[in-house]
């Protein structure tokens, strides 16, 4: 483990921020360009994970364990969110026979 943790020593914090920003943006793009509700949901998971990685990097950078506890709570929240969200998608599919989000424009002005 010692050799593994030594490999990271020279990575600047900026590069972690950049990596998380890029993956977060890819998640945003996924939400914007896809129409399949499940793929949109997966993009949201991607965004959550990039934030988790950034929190962990900052936690290691500051030497404070609170950030990692926060990531643990985010993971519990993501599990709950996925359970409810997928149930909603199943219900939508049962009612409309499609998971294309353009079918669901009845709330649109």
């Amino acid at each position: 483990m010692e050799s593994l943790t030594n490999t990271i020593h020279a990575v600047p914090l900026n590069h972690y921020i950049l990596l998380s920003a890029i993956i977060f943006s890819i998640g945003v793009m996924g939400v914007l360009i896809r129409r399949n509700a499940i793929v949109i949901f997966m993009s949201v998971e991607l965004m959550l994970n990039s934030v988790n990685l950034l929190l962990t990097a900052f936690s290691v950078y500051r030497g404070d364990a609170t950030g990692q506890v926060f990531v643990f709570f985010i993971m519990a929240l993501a599990a709950a969110e996925v359970a409810v969200g997928l149930a909603i998608i199943v219900m939508i599919y049962r009612n409309t026979n499609s998971i294309d989000i353009n079918v669901l424009n009845r709330l649109k002005w």
């Binding site: 943790t5 020279a10 950049l18």
Partner: peptide, 28 residues
């Protein structure tokens, strides 16, 4: 338009990193 919007977000965050001073390495 979607790719452009997401790219703008990435560029905004990345360019705001320039405002930071020299970043310290992540040391355990």
């Amino acid at each position: 338009a979607g790719v452009f919007g997401g790219g703008i977000l990435a560029v905004a965050i990345a360019s705001s990193l320039k405002l930071l001073a020299k970043s310290n390495p992540v040391v355990l």
